[in-house]
């Protein structure tokens, strides 16, 4: 892109630069979504985990949180279960 001079970009901190920022964030996000291996198993996973836990403790659906975080070289499967206070 050396073709284009960019001395103009300096002074414009206007809606155009806002548009650019928003697009860059959005598109980066959409691309990372696409590259996720299989986020579609998450709901099922969440459901099954909930089932297992319920054998021992009663937890609510909203107390189980499953997440996949994308790292540079690896993805992290994050599992967050909030146990109720006075169970057992």
């Amino acid at each position: 892109m050396g073709l284009f001079s960019f001395f103009k970009t300096e002074k414009k901190k206007d809606t155009a630069s806002l548009a650019k920022e928003r697009l860059q964030i959005l598109i980066a996000h959409e691309h990372s979504d696409k590259n996720k291996k299989s986020p579609d198993y998450l709901p099922k996973l969440q459901e099954e985990i909930l089932e297992v836990i319920r054998k021992y403790v009663h937890v609510d659906e909203k107390d189980v949180n499953v997440n996949v975080e994308k790292g540079d070289d690896f993805d992290v499967l994050e599992l967050n279960i909030t146990l109720p206070d006075e169970e057992k």
């Binding site: 892109m1 103009k8 970009t9 002074k11 809606t15 155009a16 697009l23």
Partner: peptide, 16 residues
């Protein structure tokens, strides 16, 4: 409008 800062410049679009 690009000059005025209210339209994405071609450089911006190429970059994105």
């Amino acid at each position: 409008r690009v000059e005025g800062g209210d339209m994405l410049s071609m450089d911006d679009i190429v970059e994105i």
